[in-house]
């Protein structure tokens, strides 16, 4: 356990010592804050229009401002996470820092968990930053806190699954760029899996819908936390980590 946190903290420190992590955070925050502001302004215009038609009540604030921002944040993370996760193992191998770690008395799983925990800590910081713009809403409105928190949890789980897939890709190659491309390709495929709609029909359609990242994430954005969605993200993350572990074990066998 101690070793996992030692690796995680070094990983986190390494990320913040590289301009990549800072620029990722800056880009993510700037774009999300812009989208959030655009959402709030659009909401205000829509509310004026809505009320000008003499309609009662109001439009759902959280669903029209926070949920779209978090939805877009996930798309941005889909693009950016491969850039971050590609470093985890492939970059170490390319730079030559890997042998010292590989020869330490740690099991491949401890190394994997350490690196993944480091990535999760970075994601927690990133998602903490993304929570700032929606929090400003509380000063002049009453967003749905439950839906907001469910959305943040969903974003964290989605990004964590992205990270696990990225880590698996990073373990499969010594070239970080190839790792980024593989990870991006797999994530995009998982994201758009349900686009086939009902065209395939029957069981295949249900399977595609189940494996689609988007479907599970959308439930969180709607404020629904279901065990099916939670287990989907946990299973996807576990699959990524196990794949990475198997790769490292295979390296020890094949050399």
């Amino acid at each position: 356990m101690k070793a996992i946190f030692t690796i995680a903290l070094r990983e986190l420190r390494g990320m913040f010592h590289s301009p990549l992590a800072w620029s990722l955070l800056a880009v993510l925050f700037a774009i999300c804050a812009y989208m959030f502001n655009a959402g709030v302004l659009t909401y205000q215009i829509q509310m004026v229009e809505y009320q000008s038609y003499g309609m009662r009540g109001g439009l759902p604030l959280t669903e029209r401002t926070i949920a779209p921002m978090l939805g877009n944040a996930a798309v941005l993370l889909l693009l950016l996470m491969p850039l971050l996760s590609m470093r985890l193992i492939a970059e170490e191998k390319r730079q030559g820092t890997w042998p010292a770690l590989a020869c330490s008395p740690l099991s491949p799983m401890t190394i994997i968990l350490g690196k993944y925990t480091g990535l999760l800590l970075f994601l927690a910081i990133a998602i903490g930053l993304l929570a700032i713009p929606p929090l400003t809403l509380y000063s002049f409105a009453n967003p749905d806190t439950g839906q907001f928190l469910a959305g943040l949890l969903g974003l964290f789980l989605t990004a964590a699954a992205f990270g696990a897939v990225g880590l698996a890709a990073s373990s499969a190659t010594e070239n970080p760029n190839v790792a980024a491309v593989i990870s991006f390709g797999v994530l995009l495929m998982l994201w758009i899996l349900s686009w086939m709609g009902n065209a395939s029909g029957g069981v295949v359609d249900k399977m595609l819908a189940y494996f689609s990242l988007l479907n599970h994430y959308q439930n969180f954005l709607s404020g629904i936390i279901s065990s099916a969605d939670l287990s989907y993200f946990l299973l996807l993350s576990a699959a990524g980590l196990l794949f990475a572990r198997q790769r490292l074990m295979a390296e020890r066998i094949q050399g």
Partner: peptide, 29 residues
């Protein structure tokens, strides 16, 4: 029980020498 010095050893650039050794000592328990 084994110490290994690989050819062209490379360490994490952002750590100091002292921190590097502390890091690996922790990993080695």
């Amino acid at each position: 029980q084994i110490g290994f010095l690989p050819e062209n050893v490379i360490f994490h650039a952002e750590l100091t020498g002292e921190e590097t050794l502390k890091h690996y000592a922790r990993l080695k328990g």
